[in-house]
C-alpha cells in the first residue's frame, strides 16, 4: 500500500520534471526529445519482461510449480502492454522527426517481431485446453522464440544505419545534459518500480483466479490430508 503511494508520487515528480526541469535536447525539432523519458523506459521494460518470462518458463519446465508459470504469464502480459506503449510512442516520435509513423527502421522491425512473438504466445495459451499442457507448451514456445531472437542481430545488420537517435541521446555516453540524465535515470527507476508493482498485482490475481477453480481446491485439500495421514 505504502509502495503504491510512493510510486505514484515518484511518477508524478518524474512526469513534471520531464516537461519542466530537463531541457529539450538540441538537434531535435521542438520538444520531441522529451519522449526519451517515456519511450526508452517502456522499451526497457518490454525487453526485461520478455527475458523474465523466458527465465520463468525455464524454471517452470524444471520444477513444474504453478507459481513460476504465473510469473511467466504475468511478465508476458505486462511485456505485451509495454511493447505496445513503446511502439506507439516510438511511432509518434518517428512521425515528428522522420516524417512517417512507420518506415521499417531496424528498431521498428525488432519490436514488431517481439509483438508477434507475444501474440503467438497468447494464441497458443488460449488454444490448449488442458492446463498442465498449456503451461508446458507456452514455456517451450517462449524458449524457442527467445533462441531465434539473436539471429535478428545478423538479419538486421544495418543497425548502424538506423535513424534511431542512439548516438545523440545515449545516457551512457558523456555529453548528455546532466539534468536530462537525472530525470532519465529517475524515470527508468519509476518504470521499473511500476513494472514490479503491476507484476505482483497480476500474479496475485492469477493465484486468486486459480483458487476459484475446484481442481485447485481439491488438490490442495488432498495434499493437506496426505500430510496429516
Amino acid at each position: 500500500m505504502i509502495i503504491k503511494v510512493l510510486l505514484s508520487i515518484w511518477m508524478a515528480v518524474i512526469i513534471s520534471a520531464a516537461f519542466l526541469y530537463a531541457g529539450a535536447a538540441a538537434g531535435f525539432p521542438g520538444q520531441t526529445s522529451r519522449i526519451l523519458f517515456f519511450h526508452v523506459p517502456q522499451a526497457w521494460i518490454a525487453t526485461l519482461s520478455f527475458l523474465l518470462s523466458m527465465i520463468a518458463s525455464c524454471i517452470y519446465l524444471a520444477r513444474r510449480s504453478v507459481k513460476t508459470d504465473h510469473l511467466a504469464l504475468s511478465a508476458a502480459e505486462l511485456g505485451l502492454l509495454f511493447c505496445i506503449l513503446a511502439t506507439a510512442t516510438g511511432s509518434i516520435f518517428a512521425r515528428a522527426t522522420w516524417g512517417s509513423f512507420w518506415n521499417w527502421d531496424p528498431r521498428q522491425t525488432s519490436i514488431v517481431i517481439l509483438l508477434m512473438i507475444y501474440g503467438a504466445y497468447f494464441a497458443l495459451r488460449s488454444a490448449v485446453p488442458d492446463p498442465e499442457k498449456r503451461r508446458v507448451f507456452a514455456a517451450v514456445y517462449s524458449i524457442l522464440a527467445f533462441v531465434t531472437v539473436p539471429f535478428l542481430v545478423f538479419v538486421v545488420p544495418r543497425i548502424t544505419a538506423s535513424l534511431h537517435p542512439e548516438n545523440t541521446m545515449n545516457p551512457a555516453k558523456p555529453g548528455m545534459d546532466p539534468k536530462t540524465l537525472k530525470v532519465f535515470l529517475g524515470s527508468l527507476l519509476a518504470y521499473t518500480g511500476l513494472f514490479v508493482w503491476m507484476l505482483r498485482l497480476k500474479i496475485r490475481l492469477l493465484r486468486l483466479e486459480g483458487r476459484q477453480e475446484p481442481e485447485f481446491v481439491i488438490s490442495e485439500k488432498l495434499k493437506q490430508e496426505g500430510e496429516k495421514g
Binding site: I117, A120, A123, L124, L144, T148, F151, V155
Partner: peptide, 9 residues
Amino acid sequence: VLSFPLLLP
C-alpha cells in the same frame, strides 16, 4: 501464427 515469428529471421 506460431511458426512465423520463429521463421522471420
